[in-house]
Design a protein around this nucleic acid. Structure first.
Lengths: 195, 195, 195, 195
DNA sequence: TATGAATGAGCATTCATTCAT
DNA sequence: AATGAATGAATGCTCATTCAT
């Protein structure tokens, strides 16, 4: 149903503004221009709305970055690709805020944790695929540790930038992620694997 | 008052178990072996209790890692030092769980955000100090970008390990952080700065 | 309309299963294989559906017992006739369950109370008619007290059997009703009236 | 706690007036001169309040009738004792209204059903004890069927009188119960057992 | 200092009812 | 005649907070 998507999007907006704790179903309904009854008509309850909101954010985060090109490998453009996952603009920041707000809940809510795991699997796969285009890169299987590293770098920078957005403009995020990944990619490209 | 500390510690335990949303003041009181009245006697309200709980976790996280030695620089031991901030054991995981649970709230609660910022400043200072012991390291001022990188790496790995503890035993955390930081430290030690 | 009857029957089934409080119009609609809109199309509201359900049960209860025969009076067969009103089998129990569920509502709902009264009038009349076949029975008018007695006996046994169906198989119901009515009928047949 | 009893009594009053369906926790609280919070402070929820209300009514019903005397057996006074269980006055009617309102719920609520069963056991025991004082009465064990009969008679008359209080003044209830029980007691006293 | 009974505003949730199709 | 999405008032329940002791 189209309304489900609308309500989920409204929930994302409300969580972005008020946090998960401050997100009331009434506000979600108002943001979606429907009544509270409509919300519970489309969802089994608040938890279901929250889960849909998380899924909505995940969907957006996955749609955002430019798809991997077939151009020959280049460290700078590779890093730029990874920067696409960072909260560089207002929209990205909004998504990260909601995404990060769910972490606290995912620890005590198995359904949310499951959505999380699925998202990370997808992201890791994408990163792995990208890294596999590096000339001299190790076998797909061995790339896992590097994909984990890249994802951790993105998460670390993204987290900091989300929690202190004033101090972390896009440029600082890019610089920090580059500082972390450039040596890694160089090492990887040189075939020097000494983990 | 000693009781304040007791209650804050109890709050940490409750949040670890039930999450911030599931943390009721009654449970905190019960965990501290006091009455609800005692809690509101020592604190102005729930937010104050939460803030104290966050401060308690921060205190523990800062006390945990071994202090920087004056031994000559060594990449492996330097990384091992940073690993000390990761959720390698049950206790560390408990702290990270609470710490991470607060991120969602810090985005909409300025007081919590302030505690956060202060903690990061302290951590960044420590990391910077450690990096400054690297032979051929750039000036203290220029080290900021590297300190940010190291902290982001720790946060990224720690976050993932906290959210998927089953899949992230200590060894995997160490390996991933090493993969990220070893090339960085090597670059830094070589004096090659090309960010 | 035939649909009214279908919906009323569905309501009876739902009330039997979930009780009056647990009977939702949605479930009634589902049980009747129609939509909620159809229910409110044929009835003015929930109360009207409930009233129709009660009427349906009353209709069934009146249809159940064998019609009085013209055979010469016989205490045993007379009692057996009255036993026909008891919840002796699964179907009868289902009717009694719904019937009894309505008593609670009838006390605060005049419309339901009216259906009740009409049903009792009909039953009393039937019982009176049956008693009037007893040789030496008093005048129709005086029989009222005995009809009330018989009806009370039936209600008392039926109530208990409905509330504790496990402990009240058909045989126990018959035995109890017989113990109550046999002395009464004997007294009546002897013309000894000393109320 | 004394308050539990107060609230339970208030619940009985509300149910008497509005029925179980119309009994809102807010009204119960108001009737008890406490807030809704106090109600849920003393009870786990609405069901618990209802259960307590039922228990309160049962307690009252058991306290009402005069205790069996040791006077020599007398049919009239024995019946008068049983009449003590009928809704002869306003207070008794109120208790019966609530008691009867619960029947509908007891069929789908095991906890309420359990309270019911316990009450009936107690009543049956009392009646059995009373019947055992009849000269020439059968053994205690055999009295069960008669106790069931007496209880059914009381329930039948009480039910009718509760549902149609206008038509069933005390006198009519007494007369009907007498008509039912006098032949039974006579039969019993004569030692003629032919059930 | 400390208690814990009591408060009551705020919330999700239920469900009969409506109405455009 | 029939649909079923949408409504929104009504209600139970939670829980931080208060206050008399």
């Amino acid at each position: 149903m189209e309304q489900r998507r609308t309500i989920a999007a409204a929930a994302v907006a409300v969580i972005d503004k008020a946090g998960i704790d401050g997100a009331r179903l009434r506000d979600v309904a108002a943001a979606a221009n429907v009544t509270t009854g409509a919300v519970t008509h489309y969802f089994d309850g608040k938890d279901a709305v929250l889960e849909a909101a998380l899924a909505e954010v995940v969907r957006r985060m996955l749609e955002r970055p430019a798809p991997a090109t077939n151009a020959p490998f280049d460290s700078a453009s590779c890093i730029e690709l990874f920067c696409g996952y960072l909260p560089l603009d207002a929209q990205g920041l909004g998504e990260w805020r909601v995404w990060l707000a769910f972490w606290g809940r995912a620890m005590t809510d198995e359904r949310l944790a499951a959505v999380h795991r699925r998202y990370y699997e997808e992201i890791v796969e994408r990163i792995t695929h990208r890294l596999s285009t590096i000339p001299g890169a190790p076998a797909q299987q061995e790339l896992g540790i590097y994909a984990d590293s890249v994802l951790s770098a993105i998460d670390g920078v993204g987290t900091r930038a989300t929690l202190e957005p004033q101090s972390w403009p896009a440029e600082r995020q890019r610089r920090t992620l580059s500082a972390l990944l450039l040596p890694l990619l160089t090492t990887l490209a040189n075939g020097t694997r000494e983990v």
